[in-house]
Design a protein around this nucleic acid. Structure first.
Lengths: 339, 339
DNA sequence: CTGTTAGCGCATTCAA
DNA sequence: TTGAATGCGCTAACAG
């Protein structure tokens, strides 16, 4: 409401001087004047007009956080505590660094471009972008961008990313399942691309089998339907005697828990009839019975890492390319039995 | 990147004309020219400079969504599927109506004011604002505002809100518990204000008891700690023999599930030793064993209702005051036993 | 150290 | 039906 000009009047100085204290252009303003202006600023609860700021500075101190998926797609993604946990962490970290946060869910590359361009975004955090789309997205986007959970494995010039040690996670779980005597397992993924982090996890499983002289071929990688009732049908087939697999390994706790629930409704005993493993270690994996054996990841850390990486890139232009892989660890609980 | 002026050049017209087709000022532009401009617009993937737009129009077509709580407060709020479900619903609805969404978590009234003023927000959606703060917030905010889950019960001039039939929900659950023979119950809330929706739910319980000639006094309303280990201690006290209550009624599934988990770890049998009820009907209430008896609410609906109400207020200035109370229904499952 | 000035891109008068 | 001129609030040269 109140403008720089009015503040300047009250303080008996020019608008430029006020602008200078506002922008921390200290050294250009004498201390007494600066203090006087600062006092008026808080007293009036001054709020800058971001429109004018963007126009003059070509930069909005705003970060766009994009959930890269169909807005009306699989809404269960949002029922997974993962989403709000990482969004909350991102928001808190941006906030404490003085950035605004714009939230958008889309799978339209042009829309991402338009957002970043319209708002002169300082940076972008993109969640769940399939790796094969990164290149074309980067060509459109002007500001620093961090990709979260895009499963980048090799060098990608000019790309910043935060992900997980997916392969190691799969490997650890794979070895554990083998050590428990499982040979007939299937990996159930919630993403179907061969380039997704789910597939990376699966590759870890494959390596674990290979190390034991066993084989886990690609037929054992099964993408899950995004439609709930189709998933239920699928679970039912897995739980039909004779059970085709001794263990079902899920790429997300959310679906592991959903499946356990269904298996039990069908009268199956977990893990006596079928073993189940997850990935994420969300709160509910500890709450379900049997407690879920899973791979732990630190979701909040993922969010704060993404923000910190982005801010370094924005403010220092520092890492040209950087890929952070957060560690995972096996959480052995009760849903995997010994054969 | 590309500006109106450049588009105008390409089309051989003035910037004003382009601006007119952009703003749907049809009738001011001849059809052939309009079509020509529109073609160039999409071809160039034109994105308006929102800075200039805000400056000229004093309105940003942006809605601020504010989670009204300490940024570093109780982070479990964000692990509750409720949060991401409602945020996702709000985002999708805003998006499909052509609004941008700004997300902020704070409990600082001045910051809310500054946000709305800096960005010339078209409207605001505030989640979890305690009722007693609404007045002072409204004084600061300039744009239409919808309060979600603020437990407004009587008329509040100039206020728009979306909430739940909390009282009815409490009443229904109360009657059910009584019908199952429970007399010694306690209501465990995650909010401690006497003005919160939790208390409203509790009042419904009280009424149910009263209707049966029983008494449930205020000592039976217990606010929960925001600190996890303190909560666990509290659960342990509830599960110490002789059990002080036959049924623990929670104001949120999240905590009900947390408690059941702890009770079971302590070797208690639910519902044989203690009955538990929830409120929300989130997915995990169906997944836990025993399945949770709870009160259902439609979280997505809450989000879309808030957005639609807000948009009506923004675009038509229509409802001066309006309070929507979404219905609830009892979900009888297995966590409440018969005494 | 402080003030003057120009210009950012757009919507909106007002003239033509 | 179209165009030229003005101003929104701020930053950044530049001048003093």
């Amino acid at each position: 409401m109140i403008t720089i000009k009015e503040i300047a009047q009250k303080a008996g100085v020019s608008a430029t001087t006020v602008s200078n204290v506002l922008n921390g252009n200290t050294g250009k303003v004498s201390l007494p004047i600066r203090e006087k202006i600062e006092a008026i600023l808080v007293q009036e609860n001054y709020a800058p007009n971001m429109g004018a700021h963007i126009l003059a500075r070509k930069n909005s101190r705003t970060v766009g956080v994009i959930i890269f998926m169909e807005p009306r797609g699989d809404e269960t993604v949002l029922e997974d505590p993962f989403s709000s946990t990482i969004l909350g962490a991102i928001e808190a970290e941006l906030h404490s660094n003085g950035y605004y946060m714009m939230l958008l869910s889309t799978s339209d590359k042009d829309e991402v471009f338009r957002l970043s361009s319209a708002w002169k975004l300082a940076g972008l955090i993109l969640l769940f972008v399939p790796k094969e789309l990164i290149r074309s997205l980067q060509k459109k986007i002007l500001s620093p961008t961090v990709f979260v959970d895009s499963n980048i494995r090799e060098s990608l010039p000019g790309c910043l990313s935060v992900g997980l040690e997916d392969y190691a996670g799969g490997y650890k779980m794979g070895r554990y399942l083998i050590s428990m005597g499982h040979r007939e397992i299937v990996f159930v993924a919630n993403d179907n691309s061969e380039d997704c982090s789910d597939y990376n996890r699966f590759s870890g499983f494959q390596k674990a089998f290979e190390d034991e002289g066993l084989i886990l071929n690609n037929d054992h990688f099964i993408p899950l339907s995004m439609n709930r009732s189709q998933r239920i049908d699928f679970y039912d087939r897995l739980a039909t005697k004779p059970f085709p697999y001794s263990c079902i390994a899920f790429s997300a706790d959310y679906y592991a828990v959903e499946a356990i629930n269904r298996f039990q409704e069908q009268g199956r005993d977990i893990p006596a009839d079928i073993s189940v493993s997850g990935f994420d270690d969300n709160i509910y994996s500890r709450i379900i019975r049997p407690r879920l054996t899973t791979v732990h990841q630190d979701v909040r850390k993922k969010g704060t890492s993404a923000v910190n990486l982005l801010i370094r890139a924005i403010e220092k232009g520092e890492p040209q390319e950087f890929h952070e892989y957060l560690p995972v660890r096996l959480e052995i609980r009760d849903s995997v039995g010994r054969i």
